[in-house]
Design a protein around this nucleic acid. Structure first.
Length: 277
DNA sequence: CTTGTGTCCTGTAGGC
DNA sequence: TGCCTACAGGACACAA
């Protein structure tokens, strides 16, 4: 569910609350969410007692850098959420709970049980997290620029949206922000990637960066169903700023045409057929 | 290598 | 109201 702005919002939140505290108790309510170590008991025993030294993000991965050079890595996939509570609330769809030395409880909530948690040595990522090492540059870093994106799109026939969703290309974009970025850049999501001109690619890169900065500033996007919430249960405010995503049959704010919905690579995709060429 | 499709899992919205 | 289907902020394995 969460894309880059949501994970970044969660990261900032956890950084304020967890830094310096140690894990005092681990409860795994659904063993499937533990991606590594394969033996769930190893996961629990190795994690116990470790102190949080930093809270980082790479792409959509949330990383608690723990003592002993161990990283606890969360990937929330479609419906995962992190909740911080001060005591042992019973939480619907709670899959995993960490209790910290100050009494704070971190709960991984995930109705669909698609989220995963990995506990890995800081230098053992490739063996455990296969996609991790191939992730593209961070979208808000200088390394993500027009010349790099051009190189990725060049010669490709797949719809540009499919490539924006490819984490090796635009790591951190998901279905919401790729629709919105393409709208801002005036590019139709179905365009074969290789046909996008340089000037459009430049527009796309700056659209992506501005969009993500805005969304982070507003704490991410809580859609109507409220599946994404900040760790304190409050909503992200960027949903109000969505122009195309999820807004089929509403009016385009630029030209007034009706927003269309189609499927690209199995994902619902929204665009304005007048503004996006 | 590239592109498209199915799969994981469960809840919910919308059609009839 | 009550069933049934389609769909959902993601990422992988696999087939063509």
């Amino acid at each position: 569910m969460p894309e880059l702005p949501e994970v970044e919002t969660i990261r900032r939140f956890l950084s304020r609350r967890l830094l310096g505290h140690s894990v005092t108790k681990v409860d795994v309510w659904r063993a499937e969410v533990v991606g590594y170590p394969f033996d769930m008991n190893d996961f629990v025993s190795r994690l116990g007692g470790l102190r949080v030294e930093a809270v980082k993000r790479r792409c959509k991965y949330l990383i608690l850098a723990m003592a002993s050079a161990m990283d606890l890595i969360f990937h929330l996939r479609l419906t995962g959420r992190i909740e911080l509570v001060s005591w042992n609330d019973s939480v619907r769809f709670g899959r995993l709970r960490l209790e910290f030395s100050d009494g704070t409880c971190l709960i991984l909530v995930d109705p669909r049980v698609l989220a995963r948690v990995f506990l890995v040595g800081r230098h053992c990522y490739p063996e455990v997290l296969h996609g991790f090492c191939e992730l593209g540059p961070e979208l808000l870093s200088a390394r993500f620029d027009a010349s790099w994106l051009k190189h990725q799109l060049c010669g490709r026939k797949a719809p540009v949206k499919s490539l924006l969703l490819d984490q090796r290309v635009c790591c951190g974009l998901g279905n919401i922000y790729s629709d919105e970025a393409l709208f801002r850049a005036g590019i139709r999501p179905t365009r074969p990637a290789g046909t996008i001109r340089s000037v459009e690619i430049e527009r796309l890169v700056s659209s992506i960066k501005e969009l993500l900065k805005e969304a982070i500033r507003l704490g991410g996007t809580t859609l109507r169903d409220g599946r994404y919430l900040k760790p304190d249960g409050s909503q992200g405010e960027f949903g109000k700023r969505l122009v195309v995503h999820g807004r089929v049959r509403t009016d385009c704010p630029i030209c007034g045409s009706s927003i269309l919905k189609i499927k690209i690579g199995g994902r619902g995709s929204y665009y304005c057929s007048n503004c996006q060429i």
